[in-house]
Amino acid sequence: MHEMSLALALVGLVEERARGEGAARVLTVGVAVGRLGHVEPEALAFCLDGAARGTLVEGARFAIEERPGRAWCFDCAAEVGLDRRGAPCPGCGGHMLRVAGGEELRVTTMEIA
């Protein structure tokens, strides 16, 4: 389950930034997960709580926000929304698509005390 390594990396990143801000504790963490990325939000959420244990981030609330997928359709010559890889273009039903967004796994914010 790669979500565990990603959760550990995420917590490490937040802890590093929190230390830099002189924080005693991290209360909430905003996370953006792209729908076309390699991360299952539920699995990530499951791992984050454990990954935070013993760190400044322990007990924090993780607000995971899914970001929509976007792709360039070569047939429509337009950017379209895409729910999942392998799905057809919502415009023309074709598959000549190149993913153009929604693959991210980013920390967006942290609330510290």
Binding site: R25, F46, I64, I112
Partner: peptide
């Protein structure tokens, strides 16, 4: 949005004083 964990949702925490959003 999926909210997970048991942390507080407000921006002021009893005993910890004012919090900052970064």
């Amino acid at each position: 949005t999926i909210h997970y964990g048991r942390g507080p949702a407000g921006n002021s925490v009893p005993g910890l004083g004012q919090t900052r959003l970064v």
